[in-house]
Design a protein around this nucleic acid. Structure first.
Lengths: 326, 326
DNA sequence: CTAGGTGCAAATAATTTGCAGAGGC
DNA sequence: GCCTCTGCAAATTATTTGCACCTAG
């Protein structure tokens, strides 16, 4: 209960005045999970034997939305529902029209595509909504869904860590191989250093993963929350495959650059969503380090290009000409 | 005006009874574009000097939604809006909170990912909503957006054809090269045949593209409506790159299989969305042909595998072991 | 003492419904 | 003539607001 109170304090807007009624509503709201309508919350207050006006509940909800404690969601029912954001990052929804239950998920891939579409149209994104309406597995098969659901935050932590671990693992492998096959001495040292750092990251992330798993015995077997195809085997896995086919030093650096950029974005994007201070700390820190890797690789790439310009190597086969993208 | 009437007739539910008032509302509605609220439509009727009750408009809108002529959309304004589906396939929205204008787009990539997420959760999708809220370019830069917008259907046709052409073009190149480098005689013939058919498709699609362009002088320069990264240079382009690096006959077939599957899905998915009978015909027909290609390639792959099993070739280097996907 | 916060009841806004009458088939 | 469609007004539902009163700072 303590951290929740701290969370509210952190979000309390200045200049306001506190009130017992509102605190009661806020605490009751934060104690729930799922998506409450204003009326659900009124009923909840009444059932706890608190005489609170419907208008006050509406006002408290608006206050929470303004403060960033709650999000107003709209499932097309003709009224709004509210979900709190305490340890509950924003996400997308699968909405079953049969049992009216809603399931949460995130897709880094979809988020990335949304950004690209918005960029292409010069659109500045404030928030995005993805809702999949249909019939859930439980309703179609008659089986009932497991009553207990893990907190969203835990699922996000689990999935983000899995992806981060796969990424670091593939990064380690990539840099180890790249170091082995790089001819340029400076370049080789860079790859060795990066391999070492990825190894350290890996150890930290794996320890963190075990801590997260310890919080719920069923956690490993619960369905996916965060989808990220791009990192199925780690961002660097495809790069390692290319390495195996033989590339020159510059190409190896370029692959590293692309992967680190993806990796940096990933850590940043999901680090920002953790309420959990430890998970957040790790992700934000790693985002910074991956950015440094990125800059290091870019510097190295430029330096190598300069040195090669002075002493041009034999040319390889030219690539196919590219057509305009669609 | 005629085809609109035919469209309504095709959707009119049996057992009903027709009425002048409803026809008036439906025709007025179909004559508009953009997203009308019920009240907008009432005003519109009144401005045309028709004495029609608000309730009747609501009832007519509900009737159109049930008949599939209209879609109810919800931009979180606390009331619904309606868009008609005559020559107006379903799509996603960019919604500007500043000028309240909404822009339409489609992303095959996002649609594909949504299907994957739903599959992973055993969810049966009826419809999906993607809404990007923020500020549009016109509002941010002060410039005003061009007043005329091309009909959605035309933009979809343009983009779908562009992608289809890129796909067929890359397919032609892929099969031509594959035929040249295939050692197995049967396999070579298959690739030659496919190359020929892709060539025919290409010619048809290019002719169709010119017809579509003729319908709006500015069409080529309008912003993208349909996004599909997967086909930036044609689905087969990546396959052709791999060919260049040297693959065996089986691998070439497998690449063809993957590409044809993507191509089939693409033609099917967007063919279904065309109201336009000619574009629809081409796409649906091509979807069938690509499916036949797919089946042909699969048969060929199996046959080759059988023949190779009888006379096992030298083994190539083994691939890296794969980790569980995320 | 004073700017918020609260309760209550009335207002608003979008949409639906009951019912009597009009009008296709 | 029957059954659906229409108009009108009243009802319903979710949410907001005016106003008198209360209370924390």
């Amino acid at each position: 209960m303590e951290p929740q109170a701290a969370y509210v304090e952190r979000h309390r807007p200045p200049g306001g005045r506190r009130s017992g009624k509102r605190d009661l509503i806020v605490n009751t709201f934060l104690g729930q999970h799922g998506h409450l309508s204003a009326d659900d919350l009124v009923e909840l207050m009444r059932s706890e034997d608190h005489r609170i006006s419907r208008a006050t509940v509406y006002r408290a909800l608006q206050w929470m939305v303004d403060a960033g404690i709650a999000r107003k969601v709209d499932f097309g029912e003709g009224r709004f529902r509210f979900e709190h954001s305490y340890r509950h990052p924003r996400h997308f929804h699968l909405i079953c029209k049969s049992c009216n239950h809603s399931y949460e998920f995130l897709s880094s891939d979809i988020e990335g595509l949304i950004e690209e579409v918005a960029d292409a149209r010069g659109f500045d994104v404030r928030k995005s909504v993805v809702q999949i309406y249909g019939t859930c597995e439980a309703c179609r098969t008659g089986r009932q869904r497991p009553e207990d659901e893990a907190p969203t935050e835990l699922l996000l932590a689990r999935d983000a860590l899995r992806i981060a671990i796969a990424t670091e693992r593939s990064g380690l492998e990539f840099y180890t191989r790249a170091a082995r096959m790089t001819k340029d001495v400076r370049g080789r040292r860079v790859f060795q250093q990066l391999a070492e750092e990825e190894g350290e990251h890996l150890a930290k992330l794996e320890a963190r993963y075990q801590e997260v798993l310890a919080q719920d015995p069923d956690l490993e077997s619960r369905p996916a929350f965060l989808f990220f195809k791009g990192a199925a085997n780690g961002l660097f896995a495809a790069g390692t495959d290319v390495l195996a086919k033989g590339v020159d030093d510059k190409q190896a650096l370029m692959i590293g650059i692309r992967c680190e950029r993806g990796s940096h974005r990933f850590f940043k994007r999901y680090g920002e969503r953790f309420e959990d201070s430890e998970g957040k700390r790790i992700f934000m820190e790693f985002a910074d380090e991956e950015r440094e890797h990125l800059e290091l690789l870019i510097r190295e790439y430029k330096s190598l290009a300069l040195r090669q310009a002075a002493k041009p190597p034999r040319r390889r086969a030219k690539g196919r000409p590219r057509r305009a993208s669609v």
